[in-house]
Design a protein around this nucleic acid. Sequence first.
DNA 1: CATTTTATGTCAGCCTTGTTGACATTCCAA
DNA 2: TTGGAATGTCAACAAGGCTGACATAAAATG
Lengths: 170, 170
Amino acid sequence: MAEGGGAAAPGGESLLFLTDEQLRKGIEAMYFAYRGFTADPDRILDDLEYGRAHHRAIHFINRAPGTTVNNLLHILGVTKQSLNRVLRTLIEDGLVESRIGARDKRERHLYLTEKGEALEAELSTAQRARMRDAFRHAGPEAVAGFRTVLEAMMDPDMRRHFNRLKDSGA
Amino acid sequence: MAEGGGAAAPGGESLLFLTDEQLRKGIEAMYFAYRGFTADPDRILDDLEYGRAHHRAIHFINRAPGTTVNNLLHILGVTKQSLNRVLRTLIEDGLVESRIGARDKRERHLYLTEKGEALEAELSTAQRARMRDAFRHAGPEAVAGFRTVLEAMMDPDMRRHFNRLKDSGA
DNA sequence: CATTTTATGTCAGCCTTGTTGACATTCCAA
DNA sequence: TTGGAATGTCAACAAGGCTGACATAAAATG
């Protein structure tokens, strides 16, 4: 609609695939793929008494051990009350340890316990298995494109967080 | 962990990018990108009294006008009670019309009204704008890879629905 | 024709996970 | 010492999932 139907505009390799129809398919692909993306961990979490919110907390604590509550708040984009409810149960159940900051004693630094790491590994293994199959199926070039498009789709703040995690990990 | 660290195994172009670290980055990319993906429609929906569930219903009714409740149920993967709550408000508000089936009078066929189409267009325009920017930024080859990986990530049932919509649209 | 199955709607109640608002505590910093 | 930042907690609420039970109409099947 906004683009018109034009394709072979001179000098524009970039117009060919941007019809509304192509974009709609991209939108639907995101929707259906995300469902698959979360399906395996969700099944595991259902058996325990945890939800997706617990998974997210566990994931990012594992990726950035010692992160503060405030930092996690920004990464997850939820309210402290919402996160606190999740963290409380994880701490009570002995999956997460909350250590008072050494320099700034107001801060709480979060770590996974062995039990927490065990659950993280279980969830992560399931989710990585699907990602690995998809990556294998699609091939290296497709994977590079996948990553490029996803990164371009993020809000700038989230891209910042994403790249921080990227650097620390590699 | 499951893969080992090996890279240049002979004959395997497919092992190079499948380290756990690469897979974790793929997982995080999906998470952060999906947040961006839903952010713009969510902002619009907040102002009205609708949520993401309404958006999904509107989207797929628009894509497959005349679809039955049952079909929508399968596509969205929710219970009829959950969908019904959403559909009821959309029908009451005059965004969706429910017509009794001609051949099978038990079925309800769903259509967007003009008002419904207007909201669909507003939501879709916002979401497509982000998708378009991301696609432009990434380039055609990246977009192809994006689509390939996402399709490989879907559950088979969802891939079926995805491809049906694809065919009918093109 | 009688019965069963299917498609849909609806009521009630529960859970997770998000929200806002209010308030307490701790402690760094000016 | 006072202000503000980081954190925690209580309460109330809403969206949107879920299950179970039940009603109705119509199709399908015996």
